[in-house]
Nucleic acid binder design. Structure first.
Lengths: 110, 110
DNA sequence: AATATTTATCGTAATATTGCAATCTAAATA
DNA sequence: TATTTAGATTGCAATATTACGATAAATATT
């Protein structure tokens, strides 16, 4: 065994897990924050921002892209990566929803 | 290598990554949603809710607990697990913040 | 006390992730 | 055209995760 049994869970659960998993590494959180920080997203120098080798950063970018958190456009020699707002919105509304429900419930235990 | 280089990132980045990583598996998302659904948190039968064996569920619960997403109180023979609102609040405000900033910026590329 | 119930832990196999050196590709420039 | 530059891909070693059977620990019930 060892492989996640995705087929047993709902699409929504898998979708949230995929997004969360992509952010489950500090380098990828750092990449997202860097993409937030720079105004334009000429994002060639993410490598210089991170304490990781170029292939490693490239791999992290690929995972963020696969998860749908960022999108990238080829621009001549370089690639312009930027945050896909839709993914952030999904996460934001998911947690806001939980937060609201928890507030109403006012946990009567633990 | 293969071990995450946590020491190179900020505490906040690592904190978000830890929470996100814990939610990076559909079973753990499902557990959180189940804990939301049940009013009281007599949580003995999470195993029956999930298509996973008891030791696997126990392990997932442990990870959620280590990440600070849930807390558990021993209660006689059973354990009462429930969501730790503080963790949800952290995630909620983190994504809300990003969402707001993105809205202001109105992405001028990609 | 003996048995059942609930949850945790151990051990282990299968698989996935992390990280990087080396290499490749394609556009940019000399 | 040769060279540089930006980024992806390959291959591999180290480590982590996922899953579960077997078993342990501790309370509950008979």
């Amino acid at each position: 065994m060892g492989a996640t049994k995705t087929e047993h869970f709902t699409d929504k659960q898998n979708a949230i897990a995929t997004l969360a998993k992509a952010l489950g590494h500090p380098a990828r959180v750092a990449i997202m924050e860097y993409l937030m920080k720079v105004d334009t997203c000429i994002c060639g120098d993410i490598v210089n921002e991170l304490p990781l080798a170029q292939p490693t950063v490239s791999q992290h970018l690929k995972e963020l892209k696969n998860a749908g958190l960022i999108k990238g456009d080829i621009e001549g020699n370089t690639i312009c990566y930027c945050i896909d707002e839709r993914a952030i919105d999904k996460l934001q509304s998911y947690f806001a929803n939980i937060s609201t429900k928890l507030e109403k419930k006012k946990s009567n235990c633990c």
